[in-house]
């Protein structure tokens, strides 16, 4: 079985990304699984020093990380772009309460998408998130990922912003149909 929908080739950035998030003090990894986040999910499951939280719906992750912040912990919310739509009303808490929030979205429904069900949310993700006050940063190339997420961490954990990094389909590859 080919590793379709996962990260193209065997890049080093997913492991570097995990190390970066740990260096930033992230101890709660919350996710609805997606192939684009496979390395982060597997590493969080294997790391005894973090909580690896499988969610039933992405909006739970928004609540979870708000609660983590109240307790002084840092987290990251991983999802496929389709999950962004599930989060919209919960982002009222983030915006109204000035909660920091770091989201990493593996994109579907854009560059080279072959599943028409993915197109509407994929095309609407950035507009929806920005409408709810989430700053969106895009990573298009492997060498973009670490600097972009690093910048996002500063904006989230130092400035208290809500930031989504969109790991684009140019970066992670389109799933084949």
């Amino acid at each position: 079985m080919s590793d379709i929908g996962a990260v193209k080739g065997d890049p080093t950035w997913p492991d570097e990304l995990y190390e970066l998030l740990r260096q930033q003090g992230v101890t709660q990894f919350a996710y609805v699984p997606d192939a684009g986040h496979r390395v982060l999910i597997d590493r969080s499951l294997a790391d005894p020093d973090v909580h690896s939280v499988a969610l039933t719906t992405e909006e739970e992750g928004v609540g979870l990380l708000a609660g983590a912040h109240l307790g002084g912990a840092r987290g990251v919310l991983l999802m496929q772009s389709s999950g962004a739509g599930n989060c919209i009303n919960f982002l009222s808490l983030v915006k109204g309460g000035n909660f920091p929030l770091l989201m990493l979205l593996s994109m579907r429904g854009e560059f080279g998408e072959g599943n028409p069900w993915q197109i509407p949310m994929g095309q609407g993700v950035q507009a929806c998130l920005e409408a709810m006050g989430v700053i969106c940063l895009r990573a298009e190339k492997p060498e973009d990922v670490i600097p972009t997420v690093s910048a996002a961490c500063t904006m989230v954990f130092k400035s208290g912003s809500a930031v989504a990094v969109l790991l684009t389909q140019k970066l992670i590859g389109a799933k084949e149909f």
Partner: peptide, 12 residues
């Protein structure tokens, strides 16, 4: 959102 917030706080 209450239950998920409680979970994040309890883990933290």
């Amino acid at each position: 959102a209450a239950a998920s917030m409680g979970l994040g706080l309890a883990l933290a």
